[in-house]
Structure formats: structure tokens, C-alpha cells
């Protein structure tokens, strides 16, 4: 049994809604979920929201179905970009575990695949994809380890949206041949979540093969997380963190010079 992840749960200000979605996800067997903060910069000069600390949501995280570990909650930022200036890598992005971009034009899609420092590229699910997927950028994205995200909630809500989702997904599959795809929920209500096995089977409708469809909810998501970690660190090799305070007691018997350092730090 593999570890399932759902990397798109739409953030809402209603805390009860969020908790009920995460509880449902744990019940369905997802080990990791990501709360998605969507920003559309074209409206006005929009501030990038600070992610809420995940420990605020729950005092005790619900246990995952069939496992003895609590569910892991991450933060994800999605930038809806219709102009090249909308994606400005700033320090604000580093607060999020994952960064996604939803390109609206072909030029931006190309840039997102080849140059942008992101983990996930979203494709349109609620409307017709306004451009064709070209082989060069998609292959570039696959080489760089950037993943394409299909969210299925739109398909559940409405019949015409379902057509768009399936059409866009099939177009993408023709180009990327089932590689580097993740399927996520995009749920706003707990009733819009679906079980991981159902989604793996739904992947067949999107034109994925059996193995690729299962990878789209499990191993590919793990690759996304690892890619997100390398973005926050120096090539995934070196990273810095604050020293936890509990260590101070343990190093009492260390030389005096070292002890003095930790106290000033």
C-alpha cells in the first residue's frame, strides 16, 4: 500500500470547513494534504497572503486510515498568471511548501515550463485550454522535474466542466505520455473529496495508463514534495534551520566556548 497525497485543498476562512475537509481526507486514506492559497495578481497590487500555521487548525491531527501516523498538512501557493510580471520570485514564496503557477497564455506556459522556479503547473479545468500543448516546453518541464496538476472537483460539479477537464487532460496526455502528472482534488467542501483508489481509476478516463494513474496520486506527489524541498534549500544539499531550544540542556558538558555560542544565538 502506498502513501496517497492530495496536494490541492482550497483555503477558506471558515476554519470548520477546512477541518471537516482534512478529517474527510484522513478518513479516505490520504497521508498528506496541501492547503492551496490562490492569488490573481491582475486585480490590483495584491499582497501575497501569509500562510496560516498548520498547527492552528488542529490541536490533534486526525489519524490516517489504515496507518498509525497523523495526517500531514502543507501549504501551497498558486499564482494565476496572465502576464509575465505576475510571477516575481520573492521571499514571500519561500514561506510555502509548494509553489504552483496557472499560466493563462501560451508564452507564459512556455516560460513556466522552462524557466520559472515552481513545482507545479496547473492546467485549465473549468474552461477550454486557450492554447495547444507543445512538445518542447512540456518535455522541458519533465526534464526539470516540474509536474502538471489536474484537479477533478470541477469535473464532479458540472457536466460541461467535466467535458473541458477530460478534453484538456487528454490533450496533455498526448504530449507528455502520462509522465509527470498529478491528480488533486481542489475541494471546497468535504463532499467533493474522493477516495484515492477512485481517483486512480478516474485517471483512466483522463487517458493515463493504470500504473501512471496510480503514480499520479502517490509517487508523483512525493516527487513534488521533494522538488519543493529543493527549492527552499541550496540544490537540496544544504539547508539552514533554527536550532531548537531543547538542545541547550543536552550540550551542557560540551566545551565552554561552544556553550557560550549557543547562549548568544
Amino acid at each position: 500500500m502506498s502513501v496517497f497525497m492530495d496536494l490541492n485543498i482550497v483555503n477558506s476562512h471558515d476554519k470548520n470547513k477546512l477541518t471537516s475537509i482534512i478529517e474527510t481526507a484522513a478518513h479516505l486514506g490520504y497521508s498528506t494534504v496541501a492547503i492551496n492559497y490562490v492569488i490573481e495578481p491582475q486585480k490590483k497590487k495584491q499582497e501575497i497572503p501569509k500562510p496560516h500555521s498548520v498547527s492552528d487548525i488542529f490541536e490533534k491531527f486526525p489519524m490516517v486510515q489504515g496507518k498509525s501516523t497523523p495526517i500531514k498538512v502543507l501549504n501551497r501557493l498558486t499564482i494565476v498568471a496572465s502576464d509575465a510580471s505576475h510571477f516575481r520570485p520573492t521571499n514571500d514564496y519561500k514561506l510555502f511548501d509548494l509553489v504552483a503557477v496557472y499560466p493563462k497564455t501560451e508564452k507564459l506556459f512556455h516560460a513556466a515550463c522552462m524557466t520559472f522556479d515552481v513545482d507545479i503547473i496547473c492546467i485549465a479545468v473549468g474552461e477550454r485550454q486557450p492554447f495547444h500543448f507543445k512538445r518542447a516546453p512540456v518535455n522541458g518541464a519533465i526534464d526539470r522535474g516540474v509536474f502538471f496538476d489536474i484537479s477533478y472537483t470541477a469535473a464532479i460539479r458540472d457536466s460541461s466542466m467535466r467535458r473541458y477537464t477530460i478534453a484538456n487532460a487528454t490533450c496533455l496526455m498526448e504530449v507528455c505520455k502520462g509522465k509527470n502528472i498529478i491528480i488533486s482534488s481542489g475541494a471546497e467542501k468535504s463532499l467533493e473529496m474522493r477516495g484515492p483508489y477512485d481517483i486512480a481509476n478516474l485517471g483512466l478516463v483522463f487517458g493515463l495508463s493504470e500504473g501512471d494513474a496510480k503514480a499520479a496520486v502517490s509517487t508523483n506527489c512525493r516527487s513534488v514534495l521533494l522538488h519543493g524541498e529543493t527549492r527552499a534549500t541550496a540544490s537540496g544539499v544544504v539547508y539552514t534551520m533554527k536550532k531548537p531550544h531543547t538542545l541547550e540542556e543536552q550540550i551542557e558538558d560540551k566545551p565552554a566556548s561552544k556553550k557560550a555560542k549557543t547562549e548568544t544565538a
Partner: peptide
């Protein structure tokens, strides 16, 4: 048949007027 299951959002019954919101989770 299975691939149609995720698209169920409520129970449909001809006799009943009330719709029960639900989803199917294959275990």
C-alpha cells in the same frame, strides 16, 4: 462502471423528493 462512481454527488430516487448528498468511496 467504477470510473462513473466519482461523479455521484447525491442519491437519486424517483419516489423521494429529498436528495441526500453523498459520495461513494471504493475501499
Amino acid at each position: 462502471i467504477w470510473s462513473a462512481l466519482p461523479f455521484i454527488t447525491h442519491l437519486e430516487d424517483r419516489g423521494q423528493t429529498q436528495n441526500v448528498q453523498c459520495f461513494f468511496n471504493c475501499i
